[in-house]
Write a protein that binds this DNA or RNA. Structure first.
Lengths: 134, 134
DNA sequence: TATGGACCCTATAGTCACTACAGGGTCAAG
DNA sequence: CTTGACCCTGTAGTGACTATAGGGTCCATA
C-alpha cells in the first residue's frame, strides 16, 4: 500500500501535478481520498491507472481513446476487437509518418550536403514535402 | 495558373477553409488577391506552400518550426552557415522522431498480435502500457 | 515556540492549433 | 428573381494541458 501524495505520484509517473488534477477534473481519474489537511492521497491502483493513461497518451492515443481502453479493461469478458481496431488505426498512421519523415531526413541531409558545396540555390525542401500530386 | 477559390484550395490540400483563413491571420500564408466580390483567389504557388505546411504539420513540426522551414526554402540567398544550422537542427529532430515512431510501431504491432483472437482477459494491452515498474 | 520553505489547495486564465458558429454578402442555375 | 452553395468577418469553443494568483499545511530547525 503506497499512500502517495500528488507530488510523489507525479514523480513516479513523470506527470505534472497540474495534469493529475486536470485528469481528475475531467473524470479520467477517480477522486482520491483526502488527508486531514485536505491533501489528495493515492494508492497503487491509482498509480497503475495513471501509468496506463500516461503511456497510452505517449503512444498517441487521445484521452477519449484512453477512456475507451480503460472501460474495456474494466469489462474483462468483452472481446478485444475494439482495442485491436484502435491500435491498428494507429499502426497505419505511424507507418505512413515514418515513411514521410524518412523522405524529409534524406532531403535535409541533401540540403546540408549542398550547403557544404556552396550551392544553396536549389533547395528542394518544399518539393519534397509538397509534391504536385497532393 | 490555377486561380483557386478558398474552397477548392481546401479540397486539394485536405484542409478546412477555416484553417486556411487561420494560417493567413497568423501570417503563415500571405494574403491572397481578392476577386471583385471580395473572395480570396489563390495560385499554384500558394497551393504548394499550403501543401508543404500541411505535410510538415502532419509530421509533428510546430507552426513556428514550419515558419522556419519555409524561410529556409524562401531565402535561397542566405548564407550557407545559416541554412546549414537550421537544417541540421531539424535533421536531429527528424531522426529522433523516426526513432520514436519506430519504437511506437513495434509496440503497436505487439499489441495487435496479442489481441488477435483473444478476449480482454487474455489481452495484455493494459499490462503492456502500464508496467508495474514505472 | 516560531519561522521558513517545500509542498498542497482552489480557481481562473493562458497556450497551441485549430474548429464551429452567428450573421451576413456573392453568384450561377433554374 | 429566388434558391442554395459558397464566401466574408468576427468571436467563441475545443483538447490537452500549463501557468499564475492567492492562499493553506506540514515539519525540520533556531
Amino acid at each position: 500500500m503506497a499512500n502517495l501524495s500528488i507530488g510523489e505520484l507525479a514523480k513516479q509517473t513523470h506527470t505534472k501535478v497540474e495534469t493529475i488534477r486536470y485528469y481528475e477534473r475531467i473524470g479520467l481519474l477517480p477522486e482520491p481520498v483526502r488527508t486531514a489537511g485536505n491533501y489528495r492521497s493515492y494508492d497503487d491502483v491509482q498509480l497503475g491507472r495513471l501509468s496506463f493513461v500516461r503511456r497510452a497518451r505517449d503512444l498517441g492515443f487521445s484521452l477519449d481513446q484512453v477512456r475507451e481502453l480503460l472501460d474495456l479493461a474494466d469489462q474483462r469478458d468483452r472481446s478485444c476487437e475494439a482495442v485491436d481496431t484502435i491500435a491498428r488505426q494507429h499502426l497505419v498512421e505511424v507507418e505512413r509518418k515514418i515513411a514521410d519523415l524518412t523522405a524529409l531526413r534524406d532531403e535535409l541531409s541533401d540540403v546540408i550536403g549542398r550547403c557544404r558545396r556552396g550551392t544553396v540555390a536549389d533547395c528542394r525542401i518544399i518539393e519534397t514535402l509538397a509534391p504536385s500530386a497532393v
